[in-house]
Design a protein around this nucleic acid. Structure first.
Lengths: 226, 226
DNA sequence: GCATATTTGTCCGTATGTATA
DNA sequence: CTATACATACGGACAAATATG
């Protein structure tokens, strides 16, 4: 059947005993969206999901708001809540914003000379994941790298904006056929950028990052046309 | 029959009829927060406000979520929602992020050579407000200028981030004793930046902007210590 | 520290309005 | 056009957490 995911949701009921019910519901739905189990475009019916999770519609609506805040779902008035679908224009804007945040972080690092251990840790995490051939972990490590890079800007808001942005990018990644082919090439790029920053060559690091983002963007866009 | 009123109603429908009850409630609360009528730190009781506005608690809670997304209120679990209070650290981060967004916009403008009419319009709007001695309008014009400046980056996300950021800054402005003394000096700075961009002197525009933001930031921070 | 009152978190039932087959 | 399914919104209820005396 096409909606096996709804019966799979029922197994979550046991773990949802304590603390903010709406957040628990949001967590359950978020992982299923990020894992690609809930495909973009599917409508999230209040009645059916509420019944499956054993929560009231009020609580469920609060969870929908949380996910809407993260842009993982879109709310259409009087029509319901749908898993977000990213079109090419959305991906373009995602990368425009990434360039703004990550370039600003590198330039800030040029004057601050901040600690880079988090950045190197993310590179190591990626190497380990690649060695284990765990492509999902490799994707996570890649995101951790860019989170750590953005953190160099010293702005919590920039951090949070990047976290949100990367969560949205998972919507596209989940639809990618071959996660290895997509994530693996960027492992070397991350190491290069970290090395250049460590050596104080911030201009080179910026150039490498921009080339890196350009490659990733075009690769994603061409994958979306097919 | 003279049923002109039907078409008159339909024009209303385009603007008003689209909004849900929770959005209307959020609008009402937002203006009261921005105008300073609801001071930072005050708790927004579900029961009292619900009764005052004639909406149910469920609807009111949805409105609270909307305002929470805009960071105008903070939600403390099992305690309620409060009008957000910005401390000095919050203002520091606000300005850190403004520098990132606005500097990125100017650098993008240096390569894109985009249309600057919106920017000049905001400057004119400020001049008119100053001539009318309407300091509230001057504050709005100032915000429109920075929105228009950020728009030069070409990123919708950057636009939205700046809109949110400026809405939060109103929380501090509302607490300022003398809006004239605060907003008036920046009118000249806006005109200078717009002129430098028009002339293609983007580096000078960036320097002027950074000095401008530095002044505003320290002025706000010192005003907050008293 | 305790007992009380208040307020939020959550759920339920229902009525109304809206979209779609 | 009708019928069905669904979202929106209301009001009441109770448990749990918090604030107050």
């Amino acid at each position: 059947m096409a909606d096996d995911w709804i019966s799979a949701l029922e197994s979550e009921r046991a773990t949802m005993g304590r603390s903010s019910a709406s957040e628990k519901v949001a967590d359950a739905l978020r992982t299923r969206i990020i894992e690609g189990e809930l495909r973009p475009g599917t409508r999230l019916s209040e009645e059916r999901i509420g019944a499956a999770l054993g929560v009231s519609r009020n609580t469920l609506r609060e969870a929908f708001h949380l996910l809407g805040h993260e842009r993982l779902v879109v709310h259409e008035f009087n029509r319901g809540v749908f898993v977000r679908e990213l079109d090419q224009e959305a991906v373009l804007d995602l990368y425009r914003f990434r360039r703004i945040l990550e370039v600003a972080a590198i330039r800030q690092a040029a004057s601050d000379h901040p600690d880079l251990t988090r950045l190197h840790a993310a590179v190591d995490e990626g190497s380990a994941a690649a060695a284990d051939q765990d492509w999902r972990a490799l994707g996570s490590a890649n995101m951790h790298f860019h989170e750590a890079l953005t953190a160099l800007s010293g702005s919590r808001r920039a951090d949070e904006a990047m976290r949100q942005l990367l969560a949205e990018m998972r919507l596209v990644f989940a639809a990618m056929a071959d996660p290895r082919a997509f994530h693996e090439p960027y492992l070397e790029g991350n190491a290069t950028i970290a090395g250049l920053l460590e050596a104080g060559h911030h201009d080179d690091a910026e150039r490498e990052l921009l080339a890196y983002l350009e490659r990733a963007e075009t690769q994603l866009l061409t994958a979306m046309t097919t």
